Amino acid sequence: MSNTQPHTSSLTSAAQDTLAPYGWDTAWEAEFAPYAAQGLLPGRVVRVDRGQCDLVTPRGVMRGDTEFVTPRDPMRVVCTGDWVAVDPDGDPQFVRTLLPRRTAIVRSTSSKRSEGQVLATNIDHIVICVSLAVELDLGRIERFLALAWESGAQPLVALTKADLVPDVTGLSYLVQDVETTAPGVQVIPVSSATGEGVEVLTAIVSGGTSVLLGVSGAGKSTLANALLGEDVMDVQATRDVDGKGRHTTTTRNLLVMPGGGVLIDTPGLRGVGLWDAEAGVHQVFSEIEDLAAQCRFHDCAHEAEPGCAVLGAIEDGTLPERRLDSYRKLIRENQRIVAKTDARLRAEIRRDWKLKGAQGRAAMEAKRGRVR
């Protein structure tokens, strides 16, 4: 065996010692075995910047060149959180391949080519940061949750800046509003200033990989510092006029937490476009899905059909009409983005539009006939 190919057992030992804090486990070790036989090193990407990445390997932190694996498919671009195989003796040190991703957060871009953008990979928990310094935007929270559920990771909502809510009763109502919006998701009020909720959140994210998501000014970097126990991330004040912040974080950084687990802090997201997130939308609105199963007609559109359990729930007050409006909006948006890349779905949507148009014209003709 050449000197460039370390012995498998010594590599495994070194990988466990160095990479275990970053999430390396026996499953990753088995996945990597074919590459270890080729003399490549495992590494986890902790930061990506313009075609290069910082990654931690059994030999320490390396600077890797991603040119070798940069595909035309934007969904396969090297991303923070990825596990990769790297050539340790190359010049430069090329990332040779990506290991299969367990989970991935994907949003649609503003590109006219309808591309998806991967924000972070191989995550276990997605902490959606929502500032209590401004009025709650429940629709935005639902959008983030759809993105999170679709990734395959477990979302939770951190209501940041809880110390700015003047009374306990008011805070309790805000938590209840978000819990109604986020069925099956833990909602935790936190304050980096007072420490409220930080210990609870730390205990949750101490196992596995967690990522902080939210808009600028949501307090992600401040919360990251609280979870990390030191001022690692730069923090800027939000504007008093509207509570919005500037992009303190400009890259996605993966950092080891002192109590275990790793944390990825991300730049604030201006747009949260869905990308083929039908399952995520259904999960966010699970109560509507449950009600729909009780409708008289299996293809009920929940508009005016007799025996519609969804409309019945709105009438008796058990389902807020805002929830149904938001559900419809996200379903339509997701259908549009999928249709851009799915010819069959485009045809189905077109047929549906034509059918509804014909039904509408027939209804108008019938109405005119009655008027005459």
Score class of each variant (00 low, 15 high):
314 I>Y: 00
314 I>A: 00
314 I>S: 01
314 I>F: 00
315 E>W: 03
316 D>I: 04
316 D>K: 06
317 G>C: 05
317 G>S: 05
317 G>M: 05
318 T>S: 15
318 T>Y: 04
318 T>W: 02
319 L>Q: 00
321 E>H: 05
321 E>G: 10
322 R>E: 12
323 R>S: 06
324 L>D: 00
324 L>E: 01
325 D>K: 13
325 D>L: 11
326 S>I: 01
326 S>P: 01
326 S>N: 11
327 Y>K: 03
329 K>P: 00
332 R>H: 14
332 R>D: 14
332 R>A: 15
332 R>E: 14
333 E>V: 07
333 E>Y: 11
333 E>L: 09
333 E>W: 09
334 N>T: 08
335 Q>C: 10
335 Q>N: 13
336 R>W: 11
336 R>L: 15
336 R>Q: 14
337 I>K: 12
338 V>Y: 03
338 V>Q: 15
338 V>N: 06
339 A>K: 07
340 K>Y: 11
340 K>S: 10
341 T>K: 13
341 T>G: 09
343 A>M: 13
343 A>K: 14
344 R>F: 09
344 R>S: 11
345 L>D: 01
346 R>Q: 15
347 A>G: 13
347 A>Q: 15
349 I>H: 02
349 I>D: 01
350 R>Y: 08
350 R>S: 15
350 R>D: 14
350 R>E: 15
